[in-house]
Design a binder for these strands. Structure first.
Lengths: 101, 101
DNA sequence: TTAATATATAACTAAATACTTATATAATAT
DNA sequence: ATATTATATAAGTATTTAGTTATATATTAA
């Protein structure tokens, strides 16, 4: 694993909001609209954060009708496996049926 | 380990030059002047990078006459233990007697 | 078709970052 | 004491980042 991929992934997770996104995703799929409530930032901001994680190969998404469900990629790099292990999961964030999406 | 400490440490390592600093330090102590050669940036820039790693609790230093030897802290957080494990060491950087410091 | 909803992209802005050069501090050598 | 060397701090600047609002796209509902 080369240094620049490491840098890219580390930059992707070196942000409080994105750490929280990952903490939620440890419980499974989450959709964008829920993150808006959880992080208290605008919907476009959430979209941009998710894109950053996606571009670093850490998460992936699945379209479900109008909305999108994001989840952790199965095959993580050794670096990300270690990091994800140390992130404490956040209580179930969404996609549990209580919300519209 | 709370999210904000994680964020602080992740921000500290999310930079190519600082990843290289850590890669060097995996072999043992290194002093500032050697990093200048290795990274190809100015001495003040190296000092500032090292300070960032130090403030995150990742490295510590020891004064030896005019110069300072930096090394990895022994007791790393779980997060940092995982990250450091995946950083491939760089070939011995200095403090091997070949250079002045 | 039209309206509503979920998400993404674009354009902008404020704050943070990572350098630079200049200068300060501290130890050693002459 | 003075000069030299190693490192740190300060001040300035260009770039990156993370948010904002406005708008575009796409799906579902009426």
């Amino acid at each position: 694993m080369d240094y620049s991929l490491m840098e890219k992934q580390l930059k992707a997770v070196a942000d409080l909001n994105r750490i929280k996104l990952l903490a939620c995703l440890k419980n499974g799929e989450v959709c964008v609209c829920d993150f808006v409530d959880i992080l208290g930032i605008s919907q476009p901001a959430v979209s941009q954060q998710l894109r950053k994680l996606k571009e670093a190969g850490i998460i992936t998404e699945r379209k479900v009708g109008t909305w999108k469900h994001y989840r952790l990629v199965e095959e993580q790099t050794p670096l990300m496996r270690g990091i994800l292990e140390t992130i404490e999961p956040m209580s179930p964030c969404c996609c549990t049926g209580e919300k519209k999406c």
